[in-house]
Design a protein around this nucleic acid. Structure first.
Lengths: 294, 294
DNA sequence: GGGCATTGATGCCGGCAGGGCATCGATGGC
DNA sequence: GCCATCGATGCCCTGCCGGCATCAATGCCC
């Protein structure tokens, strides 16, 4: 009884492959494995009833059907996002969704807003560094407390909330693990763990590059998950930098977090789309601004 | 890592509810259970981030967001179907998908076509009485060997292929089970099993109504599945009419199939959309027509 | 006003799809 | 001719979807 209706998730996978003409790269970007992607695309081809790619082990090409679907699929996906956004928008002015990143304290913000607009119901949504832009743009969240950097093309307005000290994750046995703080230059020989598919801006963030003292980060293994980072660190395969507040969520035996000196702090901002969506959004920003001043 | 992207299956479910404002009816129409439907709609509401219905146990109403999504969703779903169709269409003229219903022999048709157009690759797709129209319209199949009736608004051209004798499924212990054939009038007292959500035309088909001898079919339990039919028949709870060729797929102990006399035969037709899609479609029809004449 | 029918929600379970890891096979490049 | 690249395949495991049974809320009717 199952419907062979077009599946937007598979369509999104297809588009990723079609735009890069490369399964491995597309899989990285989609944050799934290459085999999973291959299979999903195959299934899409079966659902539609025609091949979309010509695959050789050296090259991936679009079939005519693929070309057509690349064109239509982009519009379809955009229309789907718009539909969700418009529905949310129609829901009215008595609700507000606030995004936040791990470790960012939102309760003061919520308290300030609740005082100003007790009539508005607030929902919370956890964001990741790689999806905050999309979430704000398509209206899944109205306003979010996130870490810099943000891409300039994301169309966000921002208000600085806080500064976060940077710490380094070291294995407990590391010579520097006991220090009260460690200058970044002392870590220049250590390979730095990086997220596999971060853009250059986020890569710079994770590796603390450039560094005020001119030292260069050594490139370490690529990871895809915080637990992977911790496993590498514990094994002595590398170190990782992260904002101090997130460490609370990842206290582990054999892992030490040591504040890093000689680097600028990270910045937490309140961000919202330039295309202001709801009255509550503006009120939230204003309430936070006022509370910050007071 | 899961995407909260709009899911078209859930959207289709939502539309069914939104148009009927009734979960139970919509579930019947979608051929899933009411609990499953309720949950899918709930999940859609969670994905989008806002309620779509106001539910009381007496009435279901759309929220403003629901109204909006009803409007946009229809277009989105239509666009999705079109996208699939256009992709198939772009695939070119060297492939043809042939639909068929259970029990219809397609090999002569395929043989005739293979002789005429050996260059075309043929795919087969099994159709059901309740989805053949959609499949032909959105191009999932190019041409299909199906049973009448078809709805006149389905925009199909047709060519008669065959006539099928009607048989009745009886429990093996039934007094008429041993007969070589049974007049339809002899069955007028028996409750007739019917599909739960068939339109009136198909309902008439399953119940053999009206009957040439003027007898009236008695209404029996509604079923949703051929196996349910057989279970009912075996239990003596009712009888069911079906075209003789489909019985081959459902031979079972304790079930007897007896030809029915005094009723017109069923008709198998080759059907294709008036908006002729591919050259191969026309060639297929022509090959079948020619073979039928020969 | 109390039983009853209607209707959507919930608990529980089984099957399957989707994703991950390890590995294979094909294809160019050096 | 070896090797690197890259998509496909085998195997497993988890989570989701759907089904059945049942519950809870709400009008209706006598």
């Amino acid at each position: 009884m199952h419907e062979p209706l077009l599946d937007l998730r598979k369509l999104r996978y297809f588009l990723a492959v079609a735009e890069r003409l490369h399964f491995g790269r597309a899989a990285l970007d989609l944050r799934i494995s290459q085999p999973a992607l291959s299979r999903q695309v195959r299934q899409l081809e079966h659902d539609i009833g025609t091949d979309l790619f010509v695959r050789t082990s050296r090259e991936v090409t679009l079939t005519p059907a693929g070309e057509q679907l690349l064109e239509d699929g982009r519009h379809l996906l955009a229309a789907a996002r718009r539909a969700g956004e418009r529905a949310r928008r129609a829901a009215g002015q008595d609700r507000l969704t606030v995004g936040f990143m791990l470790g960012v304290q939102v309760d003061p913000l919520l308290a300030a807003f609740a005082a100003a607009r007790p009539d508005v119901t607030v929902r919370l949504e956890r964001l990741r560094w790689w999806n905050h832009g999309e979430s704000l743009q398509d209206g899944r969240v109205d306003v979010a407390a996130i870490r810099l950097p943000v891409r300039s093309d994301e169309g966000l307005r921002m208000l600085t909330l806080d500064q976060e000290r940077l710490v380094v994750a070291l294995p407990a046995g590391h010579p520097l693990a006991g220090e009260a703080s460690v200058p970044v230059g002392a870590l220049s020989g250590e390979p730095v763990l990086r997220y596999a598919d971060a853009g250059s801006a986020w890569n710079a963030f994770w590796t603390v590059d450039p560094r005020p003292d001119g030292t260069q980060p050594a490139s370490g293994p690529e990871v895809r998950d915080m637990e992977e980072i911790l496993a590498y660190v514990r094994a002595g395969r590398g170190v990782a930098f992260l904002p101090q507040p997130v460490t609370a969520a990842f206290r582990r035996p054999h892992i030490a977090y040591v504040p890093v000196s000689g680097v600028p702090p990270g910045t937490v901002v309140l961000a919202w789309p330039v295309t202001e969506r709801s009255g509550p959004t503006r009120d939230f920003v204003e309430a936070v601004r006022a509370a910050g001043a007071g």
